[in-house]
Lab assay of single mutants.
Amino acid sequence: TSQSKEFDPLGPLPPGWEKRTDSNGRVYFVNHNTRITQWEDPRSQGQLNE
């Protein structure tokens, strides 16, 4: 049996976020709370300043 979700070392996405793949196979992220899409992983944002 194959799992639909692959193991992700960053852990789960924040509430309201979804990881998607476009027609070219590039991963992007959707924030359903604000209806915004972005290329950057929301889990890695904010760690750059620490």
Rank of each mutant, 00 (worst) to 15 (best):
R35G: 10
T37M: 12
D22K: 15
Q38W: 00
R35I: 00
R35A: 06
E6L: 07
R26T: 14
W17Y: 14
Q47S: 03
P15C: 13
W39H: 10
I36M: 14
S2G: 04
V30S: 06
W39R: 13
G46P: 12
Q47M: 09
S23C: 08
N24S: 14
R20A: 10
R26M: 12
R20D: 07
Q38T: 14
E18Y: 08
D8M: 04
H32V: 09
R26I: 09
W17C: 02
N31S: 04
D41A: 03
G46I: 15
N31H: 01
E6I: 01
T34A: 13
H32Q: 06
G16F: 10
W39A: 09
N33T: 13
E18H: 04
N49Y: 10
N49W: 15
E50R: 00
N31M: 00
T34N: 05
K5D: 02
R26N: 15
F7A: 11
W17L: 04
D22R: 05
R26Y: 13
P9A: 10
H32Y: 09
G16K: 08
S23A: 10
I36L: 10
G16M: 08
P14K: 05
G46W: 08
I36A: 05
T21V: 07
P15G: 13
W39E: 13
Q45W: 09
T34V: 08
Q3R: 07
D41V: 03
P9R: 12
V30N: 05
D41K: 03
G25R: 08
Q45F: 04
S44C: 13
R20F: 09
W39D: 11
P12W: 00
R26A: 15
G25Y: 05
F29W: 12
D41L: 02
F29Q: 02
G16C: 14
G46F: 01
P12A: 14
R43C: 01
T1S: 08
Q45K: 13
T37Y: 00
T1M: 07
P12E: 13
L48T: 08
D22I: 04
S4T: 14
F7I: 09
V27H: 13
E50M: 05
K19H: 04
D8R: 08
T21E: 13
E50K: 15
D8E: 08
Q47N: 14
E50Y: 01
T21W: 13
S44A: 13
E6M: 11
R35Q: 07
N49P: 03
L48E: 15
R26V: 09
P9G: 10
N49V: 09
S4W: 00
G46R: 11
E6T: 06
I36H: 07
E18C: 12
Q47C: 02
H32K: 08
T37P: 04
G25W: 01
V27P: 09
N31G: 01
G11N: 14
K5W: 00
W39T: 11
P9Y: 07
S44G: 12
E18G: 09
N24P: 02
W39I: 04
T37H: 01
L13N: 01
T34M: 15
